[in-house]
């Protein structure tokens, strides 16, 4: 399985207690569930959607600084060296 880097921001960083970590995974949804498992209930509530099947659409995931993902994470496959940044809802400006 490819090794990818996960970078966390805002409340996710607080809840997990790490800025970034490496993980082996070939699917984005697996990573989301993994991050959710590292957080308490409040973090999980913010990261996942209501039926806990996907991410909260307000959460932003940016892959390699290019692709912005806000839903259907199960359909996103990963490759070796991908950088996955997970942002809490942020403002424009």
């Amino acid at each position: 399985m490819p090794e990818v880097k996960v970078r966390l921001y805002g409340i996710f960083r607080d809840k997990v207690g790490k800025n970034e970590f490496l993980v082996n995974s070939e699917n984005l949804l697996d990573i989301i569930f993994h991050v959710a498992s590292l957080m308490g209930k409040e973090g999980e509530k913010l990261l996942l959607n209501e039926d806990k099947s996907d991410i909260n659409p307000l959460v932003k995931i940016v892959i390699n600084g290019e692709k912005i993902v806000t839903r259907n994470t199960a359909e996103v496959s990963l490759k070796e060296g991908d950088v996955i940044a997970i942002f809490p809802p942020v403002g424009g400006g």
């Binding site: 921001y9 805002g10 409340i11 913010l46 909260n56 307000l58 932003k60 940016v62 600084g65 940044a85 942002f87 809490p88 809802p89 942020v90 403002g91 424009g92 400006g93």
Partner: peptide, 20 residues
């Protein structure tokens, strides 16, 4: 949730996202 993040961090929250 966006408002709550703004309460904690304010607009500097944009720096990381915009870099990304």
């Amino acid at each position: 949730p966006q408002a709550r993040e703004m309460t904690k961090y304010g607009t500097p929250l944009l720096v990381a996202y915009k870099q990304e």
